[in-house]
């Protein structure tokens, strides 16, 4: 699973940092999203998914969320 963050879309609301602080941070300069990891651990998937949904600017994308049939 991989997270992509579009810093051009980001409006620095901080919802991702509030929701999944182990995965997202904000730049000290302009408050825009900084990824602490592009590949969250399996136990972080739920909160990352919440952060993606809560992002007011649709700046986050979670790719490869659905694993193969073995999942």
């Amino acid at each position: 699973m991989e997270i992509k963050a579009d810093r051009e879309r980001c409006v620095g609301a901080g919802m991702c940092v509030l929701t999944a602080p182990e995965v997202f941070d904000q730049s000290e300069d302009d408050g825009r999203v900084v990824l602490l990891t592009e590949h969250p651990e399996p136990d972080q998937v739920d909160t990352v998914q919440q952060a993606v949904e809560l992002c007011p600017a649709q700046a986050l994308l979670l790719a490869g969320k659905h694993r193969a049939a073995d999942g």
Binding site: G12, P21, Q26, D29, D30
Partner: peptide
Amino acid sequence: TRYRRLLTGQFTVR
């Protein structure tokens, strides 16, 4: 966007 970007760094969670 121009205005907001000048301010968002001041209102981060941290």
